[in-house]
Design a protein around this nucleic acid. Structure first.
Lengths: 346, 346
DNA sequence: TTGTATGCGTTATCAC
DNA sequence: GTGATAACGCATACAA
C-alpha cells in the first residue's frame, strides 16, 4: 500500500497542506474548527507524519540524546528512568541510544546530531578517552555523566560538563574502612590502570594504605579479564577464583563494582569460605541488587538519582545559556552492610 | 557553523553530487579513483551524511527494529546482545527502541516504520494485548519474541510470528517438581490473571495441583502490586513480605520471575527463615543472577540464546519470502539448584 | 485564517 | 562513468 502523506490528508479535507501541518503541530493561527476536522480525518485514516521529513525541515525541535555505554548495566537502569522523567518534565524529546562496546560514542553522537537536530547530548557511562579535537566537532552542549573526567589544570575553556563521583576519594574511603576493620590482606579486583576508571580507583586504594603506613601487597591487586565485560559478575567470579586458587592470604575482597563483587562472592562461597566470617567482600556503585543479595553487600553508593537530575538540569541550563559548562563531583556514601566484618583474630 | 552537506563535498571535489552519493553508498558504477578521492575529502572534512534525508529517499535500506518493553530487565540483556550479533551477521541495520510502560509499542512501531523504512519488526517482551486490526496496520513482517501469543483456533491466516516458551506447561512442571518434593503449601507470586502472562503461569500452577489431586490453597496465590514494576525484586519483596506477615503456612514460594524470587528471598531471610531449610524458593526465566545468588536459585530456564537466534532468522526468512509466519514454542528447562529442597518433615 | 511555493539533504532516474 | 534534476514528505515564508 502506498504510504499515506500529508497531501492525502489535505486533499481529503479539502484544505491546503500547510493547514494540515498547522493542525498537527498545534500552531496558534488556525481555526479551531478546521483543526478539529483535520484531526478527525487524521485519526480516521491512521495517518502518521514521517519523522525523517520532519527532522529535515525542523529547526526548533527540542530534543536531546542520551548515549549509554552498557545499557544493560543495572547501575544505569535507575538513572535512565530518572533522566527520562526529567527530560519529559522539561518538555524535551529524548532519544536514548545504546552504544555497543566496539562503537565510538562520539561518532554515533555526530551522526545523531545531524539526523535529529539535537540540542544537547549526554554520554552516560564508559570512559573518557576522546580527544578534545573530536569533542569539539559536536556543536551542541555535552554532559558526561558518571564519567570522572580529568581536566588538565590551566587547560583553558572546557567545552563540556561532567557529573561524577570522585572515584579516587571514594575508593580510598572504602579501603580505609576495611583497613580500620583490621584487614590487611585486602584484595582489589578492578580494571587495569590504563583505563581511566581503573586508574582512579587503584590510586584511592593505594592512598589509603599509604596513609595508614601499611604496605600494599601488589599480588593482591587483580585485574579483570580483558576478554569479557570488565564489570560483569562473570568477570568478578573468574578473577576472584584465580585469586583464591593462587593460595594468597586474603581476608577481604574489594571489587571496583557491585557486579564484580557479587561474582567474587560466588567464587568465595564455592571455595567453601564464608562471607563475611572468613572473607569480607565490598563493592562499588550501590546497585539495587546489593540490598537483595545474601549477604547484603557493603558498597560505595553513588547518588544516582541526584546525579541523573543534575545531568539533565545542567544540560538544559547550558543549552539555554543560563549556565557555563562545569565539572561537578558528587559525594558518594559508604554503605556498610552484611558482607564485611571485623577481621577475625587469627 | 553551517552544516556541511553533500553539495559542499561535490563542489570541493569538482564532481557532481550524484558521484559523491555513489562513493558513499558503494555503488558499482563509479571510477575507483574518483571514489577514493571523494572519500578522502569526506574524511578530511568530517562530513557525515544526514540520516533523515537518506531515510526519506531510500527504498532499499535493510533495516529492522526491535522494540523492547522493559529494556532494563536482565532477562533481555543476553537476548539483545545476540539479536544485535545476528542482525549484523545478516548485514541488516538494527534500531533498538526502548518502550516505556505507558507507551503503546504498536504505535511506536507504526511511527518507526514510517521514519526508517523498516523491513521488519521484533517486539521483545511485554504482553500480547493488541487487536489484530491494529497489528495489520503494520505493513512489514512482525515477530513477537518471548511473548506467548494465543491464536484462537481456526482463525484463518495469521499475520505475525511468535517465539516463546509454553508458559502454562513450564509453570506446571515447576509446580509438579515442588509438589513431588513434598511441598503442599506452595505460595505463588505472580501477575494478575488478567495479564496474559499471569494467566498462563497460574493455569500451569493449578494444573499441577489438579493432576496430583491436591487442592489449591487460594490464599497462597499472591498478586504483585500494580503500582510498581510487576516483575521487579522490589515487588517480590513487598508481596512476599505481606504473605509472610499474613501468618499463612508456607513451605515453598514459587515466583513468576527470577527477580520476584530474589525479592521474595530477601523478605524470607528478613523474617528469620532459612532458604531452603525452612522455605524453598523457585523462580522463572533463568537469568544470570540466579546462578550467582546465594543460595543459587532454582528456576525455569528459557533458552534465550536459541530464542534470540530464531527470532532473527525467522523474521529475515519471512521478509525474504522464504517462510510463512509461524508460532514457535521452545522447550524450557527445569533447573534445580540450591534454593529448593525436600519439604522438611514437620 | 488559509493556500501556494520553496527548500531541507539525500538518492534515483535519466540523459550524456 | 558522470552530472543535472526530480522526487522523498514535511514545515514555513509569503502571498492571498
Amino acid at each position: 500500500m502506498a504510504e499515506i502523506t500529508i497531501k492525502d490528508i489535505a486533499k481529503q479535507c479539502g484544505v491546503g497542506v500547510s493547514t494540515v501541518s498547522r493542525a498537527i503541530n498545534n500552531h496558534p493561527d488556525i481555526n479551531p474548527e478546521t483543526r478539529k476536522m483535520v484531526m478527525r480525518v487524521i485519526e480516521e485514516t491512521g495517518f502518521i507524519p514521517n519523522n525523517s521529513a520532519r527532522n529535515l525541515k525542523r529547526t526548533d525541535a527540542k530534543c536531546i540524546a542520551v548515549l549509554v555505554k552498557g545499557i544493560t548495566n543495572p547501575f544505569f537502569s535507575d538513572m535512565i528512568r530518572i533522566i527520562e522523567e526529567e527530560t519529559q518534565r522539561n518538555r524535551y524529546a529524548l532519544v536514548l541510544r545504546h552504544v555497543e562496546g566496539s562503537e565510538d560514542e562520539v561518532e554515533v553522537a555526530l551522526e545523531l546530531e545531524k539526523e535529529k537536530r539535537l540540542r544537547g547530548i549526554v554520554f552516560l557511562g564508559g570512559r573518557f578517552n576522546h580527544t578534545r579535537e573530536k569533542i569539539r566537532k559536536l556543536s551542541v552542549p555535552i554532559v558526561f555523566s558518571t564519567i570522572n573526567v580529568d581536566i588538565p589544570a590551566g587547560d583553558g575553556e572546557v567545552e563540556f560538563s561532567s557529573i561524577a563521583v570522585d572515584d579516587r576519594l571514594e575508593s580510598r574511603k572504602m579501603t580505609e574502612y576495611l583497613l580500620e576493620a583490621g584487614h590487611r590482606d585486602i584484595a582489589f579486583i578492578t580494571e587495569r590502570p590504563e583505563e581511566s576508571l581503573g586508574r582512579k580507583r587503584i590510586d584511592g586504594y593505594r592512598e589509603a594504605f599509604a596513609n595508614k603506613g601499611v604496605p600494599v601487597r601488589e599480588e593482591l591487586i587483580r585485574y579483570v579479564q580483558d576478554d569479557m565485560d570488565h564489570f560483569s559478575m562473570e568477570n568478578g567470579y573468574a578473577t576472584a577464583k584465580k585469586l583464591l586458587e593462587s593460595g594468597e592470604r586474603v581476608s577481604a575482597v574489594y571489587a571496583a563494582s557491585d557486579s564484580l563483587a557479587i561474582g567474587a562472592c560466588r567464587a568465595i562461597l564455592e571455595a567453601g569460605r564464608r562471607i563475611p566470617e572468613d572473607i569480607s567482600v565490598a563493592g562499588y556503585d550501590g546497585i539495587r541488587m546489593g540490598e537483595y543479595y545474601n549477604p547484603k553487600l557493603t558498597t560505595v553508593r553513588q547518588p544516582v538519582e541526584e546525579m541523573a537530575k543534575k545531568t539533565i538540569s545542567l544540560l538544559l541550563d547550558v543549552i539555554a545559556g543560563r549556565q557555563e559548562h562545569q565539572q561537578i563531583l558528587f559525594p558518594a556514601e559508604l554503605v556498610v552492610r552484611e558482607s564485611t566484618a571485623e577481621r577475625r583474630r587469627a
